[in-house]
Write a protein that binds this DNA or RNA. Structure first.
Lengths: 217, 217
DNA sequence: AAAAATGATGACTAATTGGTCAGGATTTTG
DNA sequence: CAAAATCCTGACCAATTAGTCATCATTTTT
């Protein structure tokens, strides 16, 4: 096989991925303090010392995982412009975030816990990239409003509310499952997406795009 | 003073309140595992053993605190009937929950953490009182819809979304503060409430009650 | 005021846990 | 194949921490 040379220690990379996946599961269920390196080792089926070999410390592993998670937050909404359609753009963004909650609930939970605890490892990120992102998106939404293409709502609060609702399905799944008596399946997420899109778009004086009106994608 | 006899060890009650307040602060900031009994003792300005004297164990203290917190969740919305006005009832409920996030953010955070971790101590509560409450409220909203007084939305998801948005202001305050560059003051909460009421009520095809339209209460 | 109940606390213990280290195995490179 | 780099791990250690216990102090009750 020729595909090895500079392929960056395939063995190490594989182990790191395995450890990160195990850490995600453990940290999401028990928090940073509540998770022992031994638990992660058991989950990864590796001896504890091997975890510390690849990541200098428990904290180092946690920070690496957090970075991994933040990179998942990228979205098509990042590139929306004031020429795009507000209804479609917002609806798609909501749907995208709902999909994230369905497919990466653990990542969402770890992020939530980090923020709950005052975001000690994210404050730098928040104050830099994140503020810039926010300013950009707020400007787009404001331009839609100026163009008379949607109701005058405060874009900041609108975004907060979209995040709150979409992330809720991952973060509060225990409560939702108890109340419904059954877990949220793919179809339930689709219905929740439709309900949320309807609520938000109607609330912004926008027509709901066709594809969010019925049982289809 | 005559008011002592069966007043249930005023001294003990006072200490318990003090300890619970200290525990709330500590648990909200560091989670259950991340908080040591010593930290709570320091916060309460009492020797550690005194904490263990009043509450049998760290877990016992945590459970007592959790019960305290759950009792805060009671609301006027619990008693709303199908004869009440949907717009006013929902708007007031949203406002009430927003006030809770402003005045009891620590309680909200502890609840959120508990649910994030799978709600091990709340599952019983969820399956009993909480499900009953939910069924009752869903029935009321459905009756409003049948009476043609509001849009046909799924009441379950509507309630999830109201909780998500209102609690978000307590649970994610670190992120919100970073993005805004300043903390949410009373006036900001009022504005957020107005924005959310407008979003949800309009989204449900309801007119926004007068008192949520301008800068007044 | 004696007795009983409640409140208070320092000293100690057993268990957990993050991390080190020395030495060995395996893989990659020259 | 030899050397270098990377990978692997058992044994061990120091720090933290929940909880116990014996003892003493204060308050309440009789």
């Amino acid at each position: 096989m020729v595909s090895k040379s500079k392929m960056e220690g395939t063995i190490g990379a594989k182990n790191k991925r395995n450890i990160l996946a195990a850490a995600e599961k453990a940290f999401a269920t028990h928090g940073f303090k509540g998770t022992s390196v031994q638990q992660i080792a058991d989950e990864a089926e590796l001896p504890k010392t091997n975890i510390l070999y690849y990541f200098k410390s428990k904290q180092g592993l946690y920070v690496a995982l957090l970075q991994d998670i933040m990179s998942l937050w990228n979205s098509r909404f990042d590139k929306v412009t004031s020429d795009d359609d507000p209804a479609v753009s917002l609806a798609d963004y909501i749907a995208e975030k709902m999909t994230m909650s369905r497919t990466h609930p653990l990542a969402s939970k770890i992020f939530a816990m980090e923020v709950l605890n005052g975001a000690p490892y994210l404050n730098k990120f928040f104050r830099n990239e994140h503020v810039a992102w926010m300013n950009g998106r707020v400007a787009i939404i404001e331009s839609w409003i100026e163009q008379g293409r949607m109701q005058a709502v405060d874009p900041n609060y609108l975004l907060f509310h979209i995040w709150a609702c979409t992330q809720h399905y991952a973060d509060f799944s225990a409560q939702i499952t108890s109340l419904r008596g059954k877990t949220m399946k793919r179809a339930d997420f689709d219905e929740a997406t439709r309900q949320l899109v309807q609520l938000v778009l109607t609330g912004c004086g926008l027509a709901v795009p066709q594809k969010y009106l019925e049982k289809a994608e």
